[in-house]
């Protein structure tokens, strides 16, 4: 197993921490992982993205130009990364704020209205966990129990009371992701 993922959106959406939790989940499942953020000037108030690789073998390049899965959370990222999905790969996006929807027919496209579903829980901040849940439904590369362990490792102990809420958000994501057919 070698899964190469890009997660891209606005700074503040929890893109980097979602990647970190995914990487930690991989470690909990005895996988090799890497997490490489964009840390350029564009992060400051603009877009943020992170490349996460989860693999059975030692990760070679942490920097890639094409991905098995792209998780896209704003329009700028859609413009930049739709073309970077490998043939037959997967694109997951949140429709919120998207004006030009993905068009590729040679990949599988899934949509998750995570901003909306997160708001319904009353804590909009779990947005990124709803997205992660959706991804894990489509690509169950790590078990839910290991994701919970990953969250425990990523969050300072003072926030551990929020773990049940995050678990709930993951499950919401798993429930509400759906495939989009491009005709």
């Amino acid at each position: 197993m070698n899964e190469e993922i890009i997660i891209a959106g606005f700074g503040g959406q929890g893109v980097l921490s979602m990647g970190k939790i995914l990487a930690y989940s991989g470690i909990m499942q005895d996988k090799e992982v890497s997490w490489m953020p964009s840390y350029g000037p564009e992060m400051r108030g603009g877009t943020a993205n992170v490349t996460v690789i989860i693999s059975d073998e030692r990760v070679s390049s942490p920097v890639l130009n094409e991905f098995d899965t792209a998780i896209i959370l704003n329009q700028q990222s859609m413009d930049k990364f739709e073309t970077s999905v490998k043939l037959g790969g997967i694109l997951i996006y949140d429709g919120n704020g998207i004006t030009r929807h993905p068009k590729r027919k040679d990949i599988k496209i899934y949509r998750i209205d995570a901003a909306e579903k997160a708001a319904e829980t009353g804590v909009a901040k779990v947005f990124n966990m709803v997205v992660l849940g959706g991804f894990l439904k489509i690509k169950p590369i790590v078990k839910l129990e290991n994701v919970i362990k990953g969250i425990e490792k990523s969050l300072p102990a003072r926030y551990h009371n929020l773990i049940p809420l995050n678990e709930k958000a993951l499950k919401i994501g798993m429930e509400y992701i759906y495939e989009v057919n491009i005709n």
Partner: peptide, 10 residues
């Protein structure tokens, strides 16, 4: 370099 400094690994 900036990659090795900023990336996370095991």
């Amino acid at each position: 370099d900036g990659i090795i400094g900023q990336m996370m690994e095991k």
